[in-house]
C-alpha cells in the first residue's frame, strides 16, 4: 500500500468505533489530484462513516488523515471545507425553491459595495454560474429557473460544479448515482470525469461497481466495516470487483441458488 509523501489525501489505518460497535476498521487508501478513488460497499459497509470523518462531521477513533503528507484533523464541516474537502451529499445541499444561480453561490455570493451598503452582484453571479456549468457541459436554459425544476442528474452536476468553482481540492461524492436512471447516471459519471480532468481529486462512493469501474483509478472495497483492500485499476477486473464487494463466496452461492430455483421453476 501507499506511504508516499505526495498523495493529496491519504487515510492511514483509520478506524471508527461507536461505543462497542465497529463501524470502520483499519481503512487505508489515498487519492491524488486528477484521480478518482472509488469507495465501494454494500449497505452497512461503513461508507457513510468514512464520508462523515472526511467531511469533518465525526472524528476517527484511530488512525490518521494526511493531506500532502501533513497530518490534518477536522472539528467541523466548515474546517474540512476550508481545507479544500467538499462533500456533495446524496440528499444534496440545494434549496429547491431558489434559482440555480442563487444556489450556486449560496453562502459565498459575490458583492458590490457602495460605502457601507453591500449588494449581490447579480449579473456577475449569473454569468459565472452559467459559465461554470457550461464548463461541466451542462447547458442550463436560464439560471433564474429554480433548482426544483432540474432533474436529479442536473442537480448533482450543479453541486459538483459549485464545489469545483469554490476551490475544492478533494471532492467527495456520496452515492451520486443511486437515485438516478441509467441515462442520468451517465450524465453524472461524465461530470466526475470532467472534474477529474480539471485536476480535482475525487472520492466517489457507490454500491454499483459498474458505475465505479469506468471512472475509477483506485478502488477501496468495504465490507461490514472491514477494508477488503485498496486496488489500482490495473490490478483488478470488474468481475473481481463485484465479487469482492458482495463478499465473494456469498454471491457465488446466491447465483447458484437462483439458477437452481429458476431451473426448478422451469420444470414444473
Amino acid at each position: 500500500m501507499s506511504d508516499a509523501q505526495g498523495h493529496l489525501l491519504e487515510l492511514d489505518n483509520m478506524s471508527k468505533y461507536y461505543g462497542n460497535i465497529i463501524a470502520l476498521r483499519d481503512v487505508t487508501t489515498y487519492v491524488n489530484a486528477g484521480e478518482v478513488t472509488c469507495v465501494l460497499g454494500d449497505n452497512g459497509a461503513g461508507k457513510s462513516t468514512l464520508i462523515k470523518i472526511l467531511a469533518g462531521v465525526h472524528k476517527q477513533t484511530e488512525g490518521h488523515i494526511r493531506m500532502n503528507g501533513q497530518e490534518v484533523s477536522f472539528d467541523s464541516p466548515r474546517e474540512a471545507l476550508a481545507a479544500g474537502i467538499a462533500t456533495v451529499y446524496q440528499d444534496l445541499a440545494m434549496v429547491p425553491l431558489m434559482a440555480v444561480w442563487r444556489n450556486f453561490f449560496l453562502g459565498a455570493e459575490p458583492v458590490k459595495r457602495l460605502g457601507p451598503i453591500k449588494w449581490i452582484d447579480r449579473d456577475k453571479a449569473k454569468h459565472i454560474a452559467k459559465e461554470e456549468l457550461a464548463k461541466m457541459g451542462i447547458d442550463i436554459r436560464d439560471t433564474e429557473q429554480t433548482v426544483g425544476t432540474l432533474s436529479g442528474g442536473e442537480r448533482q452536476s450543479v453541486a459538483i460544479a459549485r464545489a469545483g468553482y469554490f476551490g475544492a481540492k478533494v471532492l467527495i461524492l456520496d452515492e451520486p448515482t443511486s437515485a438516478l436512471g441509467v441515462k442520468q447516471s451517465g450524465v453524472v459519471l461524465r461530470r466526475i470525469v470532467e472534474a477529474r480532468n480539471q485536476g480535482l481529486a475525487v472520492i466517489f462512493i457507490t454500491h454499483n461497481p459498474s458505475h465505479a469501474y469506468p471512472v475509477g483509478n483506485r478502488f477501496l472495497i468495504l465490507n461490514r466495516g472491514q477494508s477488503m483492500g485498496s486496488f489500482a485499476k490495473e490490478d483488478i477486473s470488474l468481475d473481481e470487483l463485484t465479487q469482492l464487494m458482495a463478499g465473494g463466496a456469498e454471491l457465488e452461492q446466491l447465483q447458484h441458488e437462483l439458477e437452481s430455483a429458476i431451473a426448478a421453476g422451469g420444470d414444473t
Partner: peptide, 12 residues
C-alpha cells in the same frame, strides 16, 4: 426557509 440543513452545509 427553503432548506435549513442544506444552507448550513454550504456555509450560510
Amino acid at each position: 426557509g427553503g432548506n435549513k440543513e442544506a444552507s448550513r452545509q454550504v456555509g450560510v
